[in-house]
Design a protein around this nucleic acid. Structure first.
Lengths: 140, 140
DNA sequence: ATAATACCCGTGGTATGGTACGGAGTCAAG
DNA sequence: CTTGACTCCGTACCATACCACGGGTATTAT
């Protein structure tokens, strides 16, 4: 089984050495064994775990959630249903964020289209006026 | 023109008093005048500005961007085109975030559907296995 | 007059996910 | 045996957007 030192393993998954130390500190990665020189020594199990973390991050899981996923994997009592539960929760979360963003997009798009005469002073820009919509009660 | 003290104005737009002090500190809100008692005194102009901030935040602008928008409004040389530019930038930003989230959603949805037997041990959960997909090179 | 709010201020903490710094020790090559 | 690259560690700092704390003053209500 191959052994790596921190710089190697970090480079191979594309994270910073400091990041790895950080993951160790927050207990997302286990404390690796050390050489006599105190240099950290990682193996393929660590590499696998680290890759899992990076991949799960790409899927939108937070570090805290990733820790939960990894713990489930280890707890012998945990079931696939538990994992599914976490994934579904995340999915709902993502769907809500999409909904919010779509709404912002709709409003902003409309705003951008209202600005026809770009040379007009910003003070009279329809975009700013519409953002103020709820503010101006007809006066001004 | 009506005058408000910090608690009133904060309550009327639904933000915390501390938040208002924070906005003042980061120069998003101007330093208000004070009574002899040093109490802050706000007027309708301040209220309008604060409402603008809250509204722009709902549209997804960061405090920094809101500051820019408000500065544009004041600079007499700024044009509506400048404002439009900021809004378009934000729009692109939002669109990218939506794209990322949609992708996450797609993958996660697929993952969730792969988990049929919920009673199976988490260790053999297809969700976790697929997250590891890129890790396992056929072995194990 | 006194109690209950409301406000003042500076400072420090929260959460998230790291990055940067700097002095010291280690290791391999020349 | 020296140089350069790598690693060690603790600590501090980045951005974002606030919230909490605590001691003191002001205002308001009873």
């Amino acid at each position: 089984m191959k052994e790596y030192q921190v710089g190697e393993i970090a480079k191979s998954v594309g994270v910073n050495v400091e990041t790895l130390r950080y993951y160790e500190k927050i207990k997302l990665m286990p404390k690796p064994k050390r050489k006599e020189s105190r240099y950290r020594v990682y193996d393929d199990t660590d590499l696998k775990r680290l890759k899992f973390i990076v991949r799960a991050k790409e899927l939108g899981f937070t570090l805290k959630e990733i820790k939960e996923l990894l713990n489930l994997k280890i707890e012998s009592s945990a079931t696939c249903g538990d994992v599914k539960h976490l994934a579904e929760h995340k999915l709902t979360d993502i769907e809500n964020r999409i909904k919010d963003l779509m709404n912002m997009k709709k409003v902003l798009t409309k705003l951008v289209h209202q600005c026809i005469q770009e040379e007009v002073s910003a003070d009279e820009c329809p975009i700013l006026e519409v953002i103020e919509y709820k503010v101006n009660d007809g006066d001004k």
